[in-house]
Simulated assay, not measured.
Amino acid sequence: MPKKEVKEFTVDGKKITCPVCDHDQFWTRRTLMNTRGASFFSFDWLNRDALNKICDNCGYVYWFYRQRIEDD
């Protein structure tokens, strides 16, 4: 498994820190946001995805629906 890239990020120019542990280093993943209808008909690939930023210290997950995040 490749090593995940860990770094700071900002939203609308504001540096984000973890609300649980105040850490400022996060790694990124994308998560599919499933809906019942699409899943029922096996059309999960039609669902939108969300951008997640995961705290590298405690694992808290931020979810972002729109791409308004800048990686520093």
Rank of each mutant, 00 (worst) to 15 (best):
M1Y: 09
M1W: 02
P2R: 02
K3G: 09
K3Q: 15
K3I: 08
K3T: 08
K4L: 14
K4C: 07
E5N: 09
E5V: 14
E5A: 13
V6G: 03
K7C: 10
K7E: 08
E8M: 07
E8I: 04
E8Q: 12
F9G: 01
T10M: 12
V11E: 09
V11N: 03
V11K: 10
V11M: 04
V11G: 03
V11C: 06
V11S: 06
D12T: 01
D12F: 12
D12I: 00
D12P: 00
G13N: 03
G13W: 09
G13Y: 03
G13K: 02
K14G: 01
K14C: 03
K15N: 08
I16L: 06
I16R: 02
T17W: 00
T17G: 10
C18Q: 10
C18T: 09
P19Y: 07
P19M: 10
V20W: 09
V20E: 15
V20N: 14
V20F: 10
V20L: 12
C21K: 10
D22R: 13
D22W: 08
H23G: 09
H23Q: 04
Q25M: 14
F26L: 03
W27I: 02
W27G: 02
T28F: 15
T28L: 06
T28A: 11
R29S: 05
R29K: 13
R29V: 06
R29W: 03
R30K: 13
T31G: 01
T31N: 07
L32V: 13
L32H: 03
L32S: 11
M33V: 10
M33L: 03
M33N: 13
M33Q: 12
N34R: 04
T35R: 07
T35D: 03
R36I: 09
R36L: 13
R36Q: 08
G37Y: 13
G37I: 11
G37H: 07
G37M: 08
A38H: 13
A38M: 13
A38G: 00
S39R: 10
S39I: 02
F41S: 14
F41W: 15
S42P: 00
S42G: 08
S42Q: 15
F43M: 11
F43I: 02
D44F: 02
W45E: 02
W45V: 08
W45I: 05
L46N: 08
N47W: 11
N47L: 05
N47K: 05
R48P: 01
D49S: 15
L51G: 05
L51M: 10
N52Y: 03
N52K: 07
K53C: 07
K53A: 11
K53G: 00
I54G: 01
C55N: 06
D56Y: 06
D56H: 12
C58N: 07
C58H: 09
G59M: 11
G59K: 02
G59P: 02
Y60C: 06
Y60I: 08
V61Y: 03
Y62K: 00
Y62V: 00
Y62S: 01
Y62R: 01
Y62P: 00
W63E: 14
W63M: 09
W63K: 08
F64Q: 01
F64V: 02
Y65W: 12
Y65R: 10
R66C: 06
R66V: 04
R68N: 15
R68K: 15
R68M: 09
I69G: 01
I69C: 04
I69W: 04
E70T: 12
E70S: 11
E70F: 00
D71V: 08
D71I: 06
D71E: 15
D72Y: 00
D72C: 05
